[in-house]
Design a protein around this nucleic acid. Structure first.
Length: 813
RNA sequence: GCGGAUGUGGUGAAAUUGGUAUACACGCCAGACUUAGGAUCUGGUGCUUUACGGCGUGGAGGUUCGAGUCCUCUCAUCCGCACCA
């Protein structure tokens, strides 16, 4: 019978589902593996990126299951978010309806791929039961002062009608819709991720060698820790008077205290309080005031594009060491959100300050030897023009200056971070409601835990104008949980990244407990950390940083025991490309997984996906290479007629012909390779290639026992990759005995009677010789010389190098 | 600008510690079987040369008996961050 993928695949998918083959066991004494692929957003259909992601994860899960590990390999749905609402606006469908029907469809698609997911642990983050526990965490974090509400300038996306967290702004644009982000002052809820800045940074060390180094670097840069000096510039008495004595001084932060004597001016951000006061008191010309207002309406990216711009504010400060007056400027490149929104400027030793000083003709004073006129000198050197510090190395002067400031109580050494707190408010409908109530009497009050979940109202009109929760006639009106008087619910919903920050713990929690708790500590202690996490590099910062933080926060508020990092090992898979470009609907270069499976079957789709490139690299789609994968499976299936023994046969190695020995060696080569591939390198492409070589070699001989052994091992090795056809062959030929446990590697099969050695002259390969495996060195060298005799005429062999089992190199003169 | 990664046949890609460069597959060429083939099978296929040979892992040097692999410089592409003081 010829290979019929649909028949075989339907059969096995049914069997697996009926027998609960992929459900993790409750016995916590078993060795476990938690294999997790990032869960999908239920957009409606799977795309090839999903197929790749889940094929990789599934191969790992099946491999460990085969080795008798207790494997948790779950799937769920990252189900809240904008596209559901957009669909509602466009097609008038309710987001809930749209989401759950998409899930139903995609669940079926996943099933046709034969992925070994647990069926009992599946959930969607929009399930009210999931929302319930998440709201409890949020309330607890509020009580523990990890969550607060405040009004600040936020990133606003007009397209999405919502606020965005800092991490969700990419080059000034919305991460989701690419619309340009605006600034807006509004209240919102924040998680205090900055409190964990050091821990998030330090614990990256735990992940070294286990996460891709570029992800570690990106996270480290994102936290952006820097050490320096913080001190105040006191305003001159004239300047103080100008400002009605409302300001005494302002704070600056510098990482270059060694250049303190090179300060020739200071600069404030447009948002700085002193600037606002100057404008308010009409101390600046109308023209300048207008320019400054225009400046503060620009986003950071716009300011960067606009180039440097600044104005003399007509006030001055006193240099803390020299006592000299230093002018104060406003500059558009000074960031309000970092280090107090003010800087000391040392144009001689800072590129930005130099550019600004040159532009506005401000003095430049060199304090480190080695610089030259006309440019900023930012390298190391010896201090000069620095009073008592003259002659000191600038690298040493940093600490000295900090010490000096501390002794004179002028300032102190401090640490700054680029990381900003995580704004989790979204002015949207399709999200988890933030469980707070605004009461005129009591202020901001968390909802009572027994009232959770605060579910979304279903009778909403979604028009894209405003927040449907805000506009709903009754939903937001409630009683204050504290005093019982009329109060108003918070209508913001949570950033969807909150849901994906704890889902790894929800999967680990036994479904029997899902009603009674959000996360079960014992279960988490057993299953976490995730032994292998697989997903796209695009989450290098966003999701992975949030989830790491949330893990630490949940620990601190008591929902999990001590767990340093949620994801032990991370594999970032490459994108799936077509004609060198990312597959996307708008480009029309997509491959539909359903059609692919329909035509070739899931095994072919999986095989191609893992064969065409190593998982970490980009995968270039190639239709005819898919055909090739299909051909290989057909060939493998066809060779079942060669098998005559239903178990691993005993083979007398010495009785075999040369071809039989080669075939055996190739089969065992693949077996040997498999451990490394499945556990370390994940270079499935090379394992598949080794299996193809083995099958090619088996084809060159006709020994039934060698064939039986070969297929027994090959189907064992490939089962995690092409599970259906291997299950079918294994059942038919070997009573499925080869799909459990390990197969021992027999060293004897690698012993060949003869060896083929390359012969090189001065490192250049010239010939090839075949020698007995046990041949003596002299004999081998003699044969080698004979094989390259014509190259040795009129030459002296000055050195003979024999690389065992590989080659002979003759050095001649 | 800073940080990281990657450059190997026509294509996707292989290559323990430095040891026969291009495994495996796609494509292409030739042949077989076929009414036919976009099915299947067999053989060939780095470039160049009539041949002997020469040249070949982005480029230029270096270390070595021997370099895709190690070192120095350089070019290109991609990704991330982007005025963080």
């Amino acid at each position: 019978m010829s290979y019929s993928p649909s028949e075989i695949e339907n059969k096995w998918q049914k069997t697996w589902s009926e027998t609960g083959a992929f459900e993790p066991l409750d016995d916590k004494n078993l060795d476990k593996k938690y294999i997790l692929s990032m869960f999908p957003f239920p957009s409606g259909r799977l795309h090839m990126g999903h197929v790749r992601n889940y094929s990789i994860g599934d191969a790992m899960a099946r491999y460990y299951r085969k080795q008798n590990y207790n494997v948790l390999h779950p799937i769920g749905w990252d189900a809240f978010g904008m596209p559901a609402e957009n669909a509602a606006i466009k097609h008038g469908r309710h987001p809930k309806d749209w989401t759950y029907s998409n899930i139903a469809y995609m669940r079926k698609e996943l099933k046709t791929l034969g992925l070994s997911f647990s069926e009992t642990r599946e959930f969607a983050t929009c399930d009210e039961l999931y929302t319930k526990w998440e709201q409890e965490f949020i309330i607890k974090m509020f009580e523990e002062k990890l969550l607060y509400r405040e009004s600040t300038t936020v990133n606003w996306c007009e397209e999405c009608h919502t606020v965005l967290a800092n991490e969700q702004v990419e080059e000034g644009c919305c991460w989701r819709c690419d619309n340009e982000v605006e600034l807006k002052e509004m209240p919102g809820y924040y998680l205090d991720i900055r409190k964990y800045a050091d821990e998030l940074l330090d614990d990256l060390k735990i992940l070294e060698g286990k996460w891709p180094s570029q992800v570690l670097t990106m996270q480290s840069n994102w936290v952006g820790k820097s050490q320096g000096l913080e001190f105040n510039f006191k305003l001159s008495s004239a300047s103080k008077e100008k400002l009605d004595n409302k300001f005494e001084e302002f704070e600056v932060f510098t990482t270059r205290p060694d250049t303190i004597y090179g300060v020739t001016y200071t600069a404030l951000a447009p948002e700085h309080a002193i600037v606002k006061a100057l404008i308010k008191n009409e101390l600046l010309s109308t023209e300048v005031a207008e320019k400054i207002t225009a400046m503060s309406n620009m986003t950071e990216v716009e300011r960067a594009k606009a180039g440097k711009e600044g104005y003399d504010l007509g006030i001055s400060v006193i240099h803390p060491l020299t006592g000299l007056e230093v002018p104060v400027w406003i500059a558009n490149f000074v960031l309000a959100s970092y280090g107090g929104g003010a800087v000391m400027s040392v144009p001689a030793h800072d590129e930005r300050d130099f550019e600004f000083a040159t532009q506005y003709d401000l003095p430049i004073s060199y304090v480190i030897e080695g610089g030259e006129e006309g440019s900023a000198y930012t390298a190391e050197g010896i201090l000069m023009n620095s009073a008592e510090l003259d002659g000191v190395k600038n690298t040493e002067a940093k600490a000295a200056v900090i010490k000096l400031f501390e002794e004179k109580a002028l300032g102190k050494g401090t640490t700054n971070y680029k990381l900003r707190n995580w704004g989790i408010s979204r002015q949207r409908y399709w999200g988890a409601p933030i469980p707070f109530v605004h009461c005129d009497a009591c202020g901001l009050v968390p909802e009572k835990v027994e009232n959770l979940p605060i579910a979304l109202p279903e009778d909403v009109e979604i028009t894209g104008e405003g927040n449907p929760l805000e506009n709903h006639p009754t939903w937001k009106h409630t009683a204050c949980p504290k005093c019982g008087k009329d109060a108003v619910r918070e209508t913001d919903t949570l950033d969807t990244f909150v849901q994906s920050s704890w889902y790894q713990f929800r999967y680990a929690t036994h479904p029997d407990k899902w009603n009674s708790c959000g996360i079960d500590k014992e279960d988490v202690n057993y299953w976490l950390g995730v032994d292998q996490y697989i997903g796209g590099i695009e989450h290098a910062i966003l999701h992975l940083l949030y989830a790491r933080f949330f893990t630490k926060a949940l620990r601190d508020v008591g929902f999990i025991d001590d767990l340093k990092e949620p994801f032990e090992n991370l594999l970032t898979q490459g994108m799936v490309l077509m004609d060198g470009a990312k597959m996307s609907k708008s480009k029309g270069n997509t491959v539909d997984p359903d059609a692919l499976i329909e035509k070739y079957g899931a095994d072919t789709a999986r095989l191609f996906t893992l064969f065409a490139a190593p998982p970490q690299k980009e995968l270039e789609w190639n239709d005819s290479a898919v055909e090739g994968a299909f051909r290989f499976i057909k060939k493998l299936y066809d060779r079942k007629s060669k098998v005559t023994v239903n178990e691993l046969p005993n083979i007398e190695q010495s009785s075999l012909t040369k071809e039989e020995k080669i075939a055996r060696a190739k089969v065992y080569d693949a077996l040997k390779k498999s451990v490394d591939v499945y556990e370390k390198t994940f270079a499935f492409n090379t394992l598949i290639a080794a299996c193809m070589e083995a099958l090619n070699a088996l084809d060159k001989q006709d020994n039934e026992l060698v064939w039986s052994e070969g297929l027994y091992i090959i189907t064992h090795l490939l089962e995690p990759i092409i599970p259906h056809v291997c299950a079918e062959l294994s059942e038919e030929l070997f009573e499925s005995k080869n799909l459990k446990g390990k197969i021992a590697i027999l060293d004897e099969v690698f012993v060949q009677d003869t060896l083929t050695l390359g012969v090189a002259i001065n490192g250049k390969r010239r010939a090839e010789i075949e020698v007995d495996a046990g041949a003596q060195k002299e004999d081998v060298i003699a044969m080698a010389k004979e094989s390259v005799a014509k190259w040795l005429e009129d030459k002296n062999v000055v050195k003979e190098i024999l690389v065992p089992k590989k080659m002979v190199n003759l050095v001649v003169k």
